[in-house]
Amino acid sequence: MGHKWQDILVSPTTSMEETITVIDKGALKLALVVNNDNQLLGVVTDGDIRRALIKHLSMDSEIQLVMHTTPLIAPPDTSRTKLLNMMNAKGLTAIPIVKNSRVIGLETLQKVMDAKRYDNPVFLMAGGFGTRLKPLTDNCPKPLLKLGDKPILETILENFISCGFHQFYISTHYMPEAIRLHFGDGEKWNVDIHYVHEDTPLGTGGSLGLLPNNLPDLPIIMMNGDVLTKIDFEQLLEYHNQHQPLCTMCVREDEYQVPYGVVEADESRIISLVEKPIHKYFINAGVYVVSRQLANTVSENQRVDMTDLIETAITNDHYIAMFPVHEYWLDIGKMVDFYQAQKDVMQGGRFDGGN
């Protein structure tokens, strides 16, 4: 969000003279007209006020007579690439960020263009058959099933792009042509997309052996192509770089409630009784940061799961870190998960603009 965007908020009854002062002090070349609930009513620029003066409006006139009532806005978590395209197309220097009609921030052209850029490869696993989502996947690979108006994998891709990543690799097996046709070389998103193809399924880790040898000497962010999440990937990468493990696994806390009273005994003597206890544990979230050292241990066309690679590393006393995920996370493995994802995306649920 833009800095000090709250300083450019004005009420609809603010005079043009007062609004000019707000615009000048804010140095953002515009003011946002809002009501008492911060609902966006309009946007006004210095040019709008000057044009009003040409029409002989008084400087005491209320700004609601001058403002644009249908300004270009963007929802939270709009990718940086899309924001840049929107501003360039309309010749704008800023776009209000709006959720449920309320202003929650402002993205500026300068901030978007100065955004961080990461050269770390992002490896997206998209080769699965999606068997548990049949018949939806009979003629469509699971990564291309739509959530709202875009495929699952496109939502994942744009989340990474919004964090500054631009080098992508996609592993394919089932219906690879459809995936290649949709994403191409990434030009649509101003990023580079490359593909590796598994002639036979290689498990969740085997496709690491298909990556080219000329990758930059940087950790690889690896993610299953059926995970919808709001993980802060920048923070994840920073965490990995700080701790320098062989691999960082994202984990999600889950819990299970035993439906009975649990008895603890010493031989025949009961020493405690806990009614329906809740057990908490961490589960694999399907997102990893993989060091080049670990990736290089996978041979070409070797079938291996990520859990096997990690268990072997742990056995050999290598440091494997875990990164707890508190943000939104959903593994779209079953039909009920797919319907939940649809609800979260289309009805403004937890995934839309929040954790």
Rank of each mutant, 00 (worst) to 15 (best):
M322H: 02
A313I: 08
Q293I: 06
A321M: 09
N296E: 15
N296Q: 15
D308S: 14
V298F: 14
Y319C: 06
A295Q: 08
A321G: 07
L294Y: 02
N301A: 11
D317I: 05
V298D: 08
E300K: 14
T297I: 03
I320L: 01
S299Q: 14
A295G: 05
E300Y: 11
V298I: 12
D305E: 12
D308W: 13
I320D: 00
M322R: 00
D305T: 04
D308G: 08
A295F: 02
L309K: 03
V298H: 13
A313P: 12
Q302G: 12
Y319E: 10
E311F: 08
Y319W: 14
V298M: 13
I314Q: 01
T312W: 02
Q293A: 12
H318R: 10
E300Q: 14
A313E: 06
A321C: 11
E311C: 07
E311H: 12
D317Y: 10
I314W: 00
T315P: 02
N301V: 10
E311Y: 09
D317M: 09
T312E: 03
T315C: 09
H318Y: 10
T315K: 14
T307R: 05
D305F: 12
I320M: 00
T297M: 02
D317P: 00
R303W: 06
M322D: 00
N301Q: 13
A295C: 05
T297H: 04
V298W: 08
T312H: 07
L309N: 03
D317K: 10
V304A: 06
D305N: 15
T312F: 05
M306E: 11
T307Q: 07
H318C: 13
A321P: 02
Q293Y: 03
S299R: 15
L309T: 04
T312C: 04
